[in-house]
Each structure stands twice: as structure tokens, then as C-alpha cells.
Simulated assay, not measured.
Amino acid sequence: MTGGSVDVALLAYGGPETPAQVAPFLERLMGRVPDAATVAAVKERYALIGGASPLPGITVRQARALQGRLTRDLPGPVRVRPGFLYGEPSVTDCVRALDAAQVVALPMSPFSSRLTSGRYRAGLAAAEDRAAGGAGRDIPLLEGWHASRGFVGAVSRRIAEALDGSDAREWAVLFTAHSVPVETVAAGDPYVEQLRQTAAKLTRRIAAGGSRFGFQSKGRGGGEWTEPEADAVARDLAGEGWKKILVVPVGFVSENVETLYDLDVVLRGHIEDLGMEYRRTRPPNDSPQFIEALAAVVTAHLAERPATPADRAENLPADG
């Protein structure tokens, strides 16, 4: 492993932390000014989950915990800072404040997709564009850790916590993740295949009665989206005689409106209307197991990277 200082940009989508931030957040997300009806509908959703998104705060805690873990694991100084695609601090502000010998970006999505990691790469490129004031660095994006032992173990721990004290064989597990346009998958996007790989690894670790996969939070833009939808899978499970469903939002590493509203309000209502019991696992958030998994992604990358002139310069004696 190379020595020297290390900076990590911990990248996430972001979310409104107050009702007043809903409209600006939507404008960034949509790329246009949202109409009043859309703003009102989204504000209503956030009102039902406490008035704001918990995601930014969770990301800040993840960054602090990861910095503490990497400080123990690495020989040189370490900084971990959050940056958001659609919030503050922005990806640009985050990245331009980092100047260590080695700077890497770690997305808070373990799955590779042009709709997630692709946007993070575009954000990094914009931040580093020399014509726009950037430093011109090629900052690596540490993506595709969906099947890592650490991530799978962190989600497995959440499943075990949710089923603690229950007969796991009585529960059908419903893995969920955000739906994407079918055309994205048809173009070779690895997102769905990576989700299946993760779900398969998790299924081998748990003792539940059965497992299925369903997509949630389909976009409003029309067109075909990945199926089956989670509510349709729940309907099938009810038809098979299941009475209890444990929902595992494997596509999300932090609580957000899509877990707290789309699942805990909308999907829960659907499942209970079918006469079944609803239970959901928490995402990894800032659990010790998840922070350890993130640290492993960073240290594995650094171990494979050869020393650069900047690394060697940092390791010279002070009077060298």
C-alpha cells in the first residue's frame, strides 16, 4: 500500500433537510423548475416521514465514521468529506476542497449504473474541468462493490436484526431496489444483474421461508420500467399463502424518502390490505459493519495503486 495523505469524497444524491429545500432539490434533480403541484405533492410525502430527508445527515455520519476507521487502517493523514449531486455541499465543492496525495471518490451506491455511478463520474469530471476552475485530476470512482463480503455481511446483519425472535421460516423476503428504464438495461447497464448477484448471495445466508425480488419507486416519465414491481410481487406472495413479508431494500444504503414513504407508507398499505404482516429491514446506514465494508473498498483500491511522485514527495524527510 502506498503511503502519504488520502482524501475520500463520499458521494450521495442528497435530499431536502427542510420543507423550504424541497423546491431547490427538485430543480436540481429534474434539471428544470418544478411546477407547484409537484412541489406540493413531494412536500406532503416528506411531511409524512418527519418533514425532511434523513439521507444528508446519515451521509455526514458515514463520512465521520469512515474517516475514523481509515485513520486506524492507513499510515498517513485521512480526510473523508460528503458531497451531494443534488444538495450541499455539492460534488464540486467537496472535491475541490480535497488536495491529498491520493484522492478517491466513493459512491453511496454499491451498484454500477449510468443513472447512479454514471452521474457521479460526470459530476467528478465537471468538478475537475480545468476550464471551469478544476485541477484536472482523474479521480477514481470506487464503484461495483455490490458483491463484496463486507456489504453483503452488513445487509445480512440487518436481516438478522429484523427477524430476531421470529421463526424465519414464516417470512417471505422481498428484496427491493429502485426501478430503472428498460432501455437502460437493454443498452448493457449492469445494474439489474448486479442486484440479482447481491440478492443471490443474501439468500444463501438467510434462513427465511422464501425470497423474491421486486422494483420500487418507478419514475413518472413514462416508458417501460423494470419489472416485476414490488406490489405485484407482494400480491403473488399473498396468493401463495404467505402471511408475513420482510422487505429488504437492498438497493439503498441509507434511509430516504423511498424507504420511509414508498415502502413504509405505500407498500406497507398494499401488503396489509392483502392481509399480510409487513416488516422492513433498516438500510446499513452508519452501522459498524457497513463502515468496515466501505473502509475495505478504499484500502483495497489503495493497495492496488502504485506509488506516484506526489506520494514519494510526501514521504521525504522534512529537511530532504
Rank of each mutant, 00 (worst) to 15 (best):
R114W: 00
V33R: 15
A125M: 11
D138T: 11
P82K: 04
I159K: 11
D35Y: 05
V80E: 14
V80G: 11
G144R: 07
C94A: 11
R96D: 01
L70V: 06
G134L: 04
T38Q: 14
Q62E: 09
A125K: 11
L141V: 12
P89I: 03
A101H: 05
Q21V: 00
E17D: 02
G68L: 03
Y46K: 07
P34F: 03
G144W: 05
Q21H: 09
L26V: 08
P56T: 02
S112F: 04
S117M: 00
W145H: 09
F151A: 05
L142G: 11
L115M: 13
P19E: 12
T116F: 02
S109G: 14
R157Y: 09
A101K: 07
G68C: 01
T38F: 13
A126K: 13
K43I: 01
V78G: 13
P19N: 10
Y120A: 01
V104N: 13
F84I: 08
S156E: 15
L29T: 10
E128L: 08
T38V: 10
T71W: 03
P34S: 02
Q62V: 02
R69E: 15
L48V: 12
R114M: 10
S113Q: 04
P56M: 05
T38H: 03
M30L: 15
P24G: 01
G118T: 00
A65I: 00
V155Q: 02
T59H: 03
G76A: 08
Q102G: 06
T116G: 04
S90N: 08
L98Q: 07
A127R: 01
P82R: 10
P140H: 06
P89D: 08
H146W: 06
G153M: 00
G118L: 00
G136A: 05
E143Y: 01
R32M: 12
D93N: 05
G76M: 08
P24N: 00
V103G: 11
R130E: 14
Y46T: 12
T38D: 07
A52R: 15
L124W: 06
T59M: 07
A100R: 12
V152D: 08
G150D: 06
L106V: 05
P140Y: 01
